[in-house]
């Protein structure tokens, strides 16, 4: 069955025809040209497809497109209106990724964390990013970068 879904994507209203069983990830990538969320597993295990729906990080590969009717969907593309965010800058400075395929998902999960908790402890950082798999880095530089963000926010009184 076909549906028309209307939602906000990265700040702009979109309207798209989808099937009942179509996943948000496929609609974003194939119908709307938003390719930062990646296909890694298709069953919500790896976190590469993470986007924010009304500020909450969600696996778009196990979210039906019809579920986002009327909601605000933000992908990595929508975070950077003013250039790389503080989180992205810290990831860049720390060479936080290698192959980079998991990077968009990590940025989204990290963004959700910092929005809720601007200066998290390392323990909180690790728990918030535990659903994002990276096979290359051993996560060290990701944690280092996030610790820097946390420290910076603390110093800025956030």
């Amino acid at each position: 069955m076909n549906h028309t879904v209307k939602f906000n994507l990265n700040g702009s209203p979109v309207e798209v025809q989808v099937k009942s069983n179509e996943k948000l990830l496929d609609v974003l990538r194939d119908k709307l040209g938003v390719t930062s969320p990646k296909f890694g597993c298709g069953v919500g295990e790896c976190g590469a497809c993470t986007v924010l729906i009304d500020g909450l990080s969600v696996r778009s590969c196990i979210t039906f497109a019809v579920e986002v009717e009327g909601k605000n969907v933000v992908s990595l593309e929508g975070l950077q209106a003013d250039g790389p965010t503080k989180i992205q800058k810290a990831f860049i400075k720390n060479n936080a990724f290698q192959c980079g395929f998991c990077a968009p998902g990590f940025v989204m999960s990290a963004t959700e964390l910092i929005e809720k908790n601007p200066s998290p402890t390392e323990e909180e950082i690790r728990h918030a990013l535990a659903g994002n798999l990276c096979r290359c880095t051993g996560y060290k530089n990701i944690v280092d970068a996030m610790n820097e963000v946390s420290q910076e926010n603390k110093e800025e009184g956030r």
């Binding site: 790389p84 060479n95 980079g100 990077a103 940025v107």
Partner: peptide
Amino acid sequence: AVRLDILEKVTGAAEYTDD
């Protein structure tokens, strides 16, 4: 040095085959 390809990877600009 900061790796040459880090910016495109962290900004989502890197286009992998499926992209």
